[in-house]
Structure formats: structure tokens, C-alpha cells
């Protein structure tokens, strides 16, 4: 039987985040002046970004233009996008920050 599940992109989170943040640093000042506290999905490969009032709005805009790509999500002006006060480091899965398995298994 053929697996009809769409192929999931593979990701090395550490490397992906590093390159994304390098691109974000180039547009950071402009974004913080124009869209403070909003969310931005960025793609360092195309040097493009999409802004939204919410995390899902920014990602949806980005996915509309590039359905197969993955994006780095930042809340503009904040060092972190998500804050989870009930979860500690030990509760995260995969401490190596490298996930190359197919989630849609």
C-alpha cells in the first residue's frame, strides 16, 4: 500500500534557528519600529517575512505563499516567542534539538 501522507520537511532546529536569527537581526530594527509586539514568520532562504497579530496569522500568511516551507516565528521585540510557565526543560522532548524523523509517520 502506498503512503499518501505529504512528506514532512526535515529540520535541524539549532542550525535552522541560527540562520533565521541572523536574518532577523538584519530586519529587527525596522520591525520593532513598525510592528512592535506583533508576530513575524521569517524565511532566511528567501529573505522574506510575514507579520500577523497572532502567531497563527503570521504562519498562515507565510504558508499561503510557500506551503512546503518551514518558518521561524518571533514575537517582535521579545527575546522569546512563547512562554510556558508550567513546563521545565526536562519536559521537552528531544534534548538534542535535532529532529529528523517524519512526524506524519
Amino acid at each position: 500500500m502506498t503512503d499518501q501522507t505529504p512528506q514532512q520537511p526535515q529540520i535541524n532546529v539549532e542550525e535552522f534557528s541560527k540562520k533565521s536569527l541572523e536574518f532577523y537581526d538584519q530586519i529587527k530594527a525596522q520591525l520593532e519600529a513598525e510592528s512592535p509586539n506583533k508576530y513575524v514568520a521569517i524565511d532566511y532562504e528567501t529573505s522574506r517575512h510575514w507579520i500577523g497579530e497572532t502567531a497563527s496569522e503570521a504562519l498562515t500568511k507565510a504558508k499561503t505563499d510557500f506551503p512546503q516551507k518551514i518558518f521561524y516565528l518571533i514575537q517582535i521585540g521579545s527575546p522569546t516567542t512563547f512562554s510556558i510557565q508550567s513546563i521545565r526543560t526536562n519536559d521537552l522532548f528531544g534534548k538534542k534539538n535535532s529532529y529528523d524523523f517524519n512526524w506524519a509517520h
Binding site: P6, Q8, P9, I11, V13, E14, F16, S17, S20, A41, A55, L59, K63, I70, F71, Y72, L73, I74, P79, T80, T81, F82, S83, I84, Q85, S86, I87, R88, T89, D91, L92, N97, W103, A104
Partner: peptide
């Protein structure tokens, strides 16, 4: 569906991608 990555701040103050 995998959408990407983001920086998280956790209860112990750590930040991770």
C-alpha cells in the same frame, strides 16, 4: 504538520529553540 521553530522560555527560566 511541521511549521517551523521558535524560541521558548520555560518555567525554569531557560530559553530553547
Amino acid at each position: 504538520q511541521l511549521a517551523g521553530a521558535a524560541p521558548y522560555r520555560l518555567a525554569d527560566g531557560s530559553i530553547s529553540q
